[in-house]
Simulated scan of single mutants.
Amino acid sequence: MVGVPEPHSGWTFITSHARVLAAIADNPNVRIRDIAAHCRLTERAVQRIISDLEQCGYLSRTRDGRTNTYRIEPDKVLRHPAEAGLSVASLLSLLVQDETDRARTPVPR
């Protein structure tokens, strides 16, 4: 994952659920520990969020030994009425850089 941002207090635009989903979209084999560090959440909070996302059908998980591989349902529609008709894919297009953009974007220090 790209560098972890500095701590922040106050409100933000993106929910923890969206941050976790974006971290998984960036790396489907990411560890909960790494998601927690990147999103500035506890591992327990990440586990709860992943469970929420699975229960609502936004995400599925397969286990291979000690490794989880996540699969996001890109066509699943967002839950809030204000986002009626928008899919997970449209949300992730705003939050996740593709590999070519990542190579060109300098990591903030």
Score class of each variant (00 low, 15 high):
Val2Asn: 14
Gly3Val: 06
Gly3His: 10
Val4Leu: 07
Val4Ala: 05
Pro5Glu: 11
Pro5Ile: 08
Pro5Thr: 08
Glu6Ile: 15
Glu6Trp: 14
Glu6Thr: 14
Pro7Gln: 09
Pro7Gly: 07
Ser9Thr: 15
Ser9Val: 15
Gly10Ala: 07
Trp11Gln: 14
Trp11Arg: 13
Trp11Thr: 10
Ile14Asn: 03
Thr15Ala: 07
Ser16Val: 07
Ala18Val: 03
Val20Arg: 05
Val20Ala: 07
Val20His: 09
Leu21Ile: 04
Ala23Gly: 01
Ala25Trp: 04
Ala25Ile: 09
Asp26Leu: 11
Asn27His: 12
Pro28Asn: 15
Pro28Lys: 10
Pro28Val: 02
Asn29Cys: 06
Asn29Ser: 13
Val30Asp: 05
Val30Trp: 01
Val30Tyr: 04
Val30Asn: 06
Arg31Pro: 00
Arg31His: 08
Ile32Arg: 06
Arg33Cys: 09
Arg33Met: 07
Ile35His: 05
Ala36Asn: 11
Ala37Ile: 14
His38Phe: 14
Leu41Ala: 07
Leu41Cys: 04
Thr42Arg: 13
Glu43His: 06
Ala45Gln: 15
Ala45Pro: 08
Val46Arg: 04
Val46Ala: 01
Gln47Arg: 12
Ile49Ser: 01
Ile50Gly: 01
Asp52Met: 01
Asp52Tyr: 09
Gln55His: 12
Cys56Gln: 12
Gly57Tyr: 00
Gly57Thr: 00
Tyr58Ser: 00
Tyr58Lys: 00
Leu59Glu: 03
Leu59Ser: 05
Arg61Cys: 13
Arg61Tyr: 06
Thr62Asn: 10
Thr62Ala: 08
Thr62Arg: 08
Arg63Glu: 13
Thr67Glu: 08
Thr67Lys: 06
Asn68His: 15
Arg71Ser: 15
Ile72Thr: 03
Ile72Pro: 05
Pro74Cys: 02
Asp75Tyr: 05
Lys76Thr: 04
Lys76Val: 03
Val77Phe: 07
Val77Gly: 02
Leu78Asp: 01
Leu78Lys: 01
Leu78Pro: 06
His80Leu: 10
His80Thr: 14
His80Trp: 11
Pro81Glu: 11
Ala82Gly: 11
Glu83Ile: 12
Glu83Ala: 15
Ala84Gly: 08
Gly85Ala: 03
Leu86Gln: 11
Ser87Gly: 02
Ser87Phe: 05
Val88Trp: 01
Ala89Ile: 03
Ala89Gln: 14
Ala89Asp: 07
Ser90Cys: 11
Leu91Thr: 00
Leu91Met: 06
Leu91Ile: 00
Leu91Arg: 00
Leu95Asn: 02
Gln97Val: 07
Asp98Arg: 10
Glu99Thr: 14
Glu99Arg: 12
Glu99Asp: 10
Thr100Ser: 10
Ala103Arg: 12
Ala103Cys: 05
Arg104Gly: 03
Arg104Tyr: 08
Thr105Pro: 00
Thr105Gln: 02
Pro106Thr: 00
Val107Ile: 01
Val107Trp: 02
Val107Gln: 13
Pro108Trp: 04
Arg109Asp: 05
Arg109Pro: 06
Arg109Asn: 07
